[in-house]
Amino acid sequence: MMLQVENLHAGYGGAKILRGVSFDLAAGEVLVLLGRNGAGKSTTIKALMGLLRPTAGRVRLAGADIAGWEPHRIARAGLGWVPEERRVFPELTVAENLEVGRRPAREGLAPWTPERLFALFPNLAELRQRPGARISGGEQQMVAIARTLMGNPRVLLLDEPGEGLAPVIVDLMAEAILALKREGATVLLAEQSLAFASRVADRAVILETGRIVWDGAIDALLADTGARARHLQV
């Protein structure tokens, strides 16, 4: 297993959000976290990344227990986070944004370079010298993903990559994820939209009030109208 999450608990202040989340992610797999607003999808991602300190539970990344580590150590260990708000550095150029993400190559993975990333996101190539604040929302999302890939992560954490984007751009995002998958990337995706998830994911887990209530292949979820109605109201 590339990533093993066992009985993860986390919350903000007194509010408990995650109450024992467990799932596995195999190398080369795209897993989607589904669930309503407030179910704990973003919180799971933040707890994995160390942006929120888990109160209990274990997170094994390629063997090491990274639960409770600081974000920069977790990033170095191989989790790459793309935040929902993108958080592109507004005053750095696209090229500089990518440079900030650069980390040494990881054994067994072909290292990412700006050239390879511009091939993945052709729109970005001509925007190299443009400041982050002066590109569109869709382009910012591409920069955010590319910047994280520059760190050669073992697992890519994508938090709602299609949020607030035009449908055509959402299509581009789905294609990019599929392209990454073909290259062997391991992806954990938090998503609201089952439609988007079904295009890219192999497997799905559904969160409800901080617990996993469904876990299985995405095709099984699409076929299981009862579970979809119960957990996702679709």
Binding site: M49, L51, E70, P71, H72, A75, R76, W81, P83, R87, F89, P90, E91, L92, E96, N97, E99, V100, G101, R103, R147, T148, G151
Partner: peptide, 20 residues
């Protein structure tokens, strides 16, 4: 470069593997 990035969003810089 890292300093300029941290000026704009220090938590994001940390999440990219830089020891703040």
């Amino acid at each position: 470069l890292l300093v300029r990035a941290a000026t704009q969003d220090r938590d994001m810089v940390a999440a990219l593997g830089v020891d703040q």
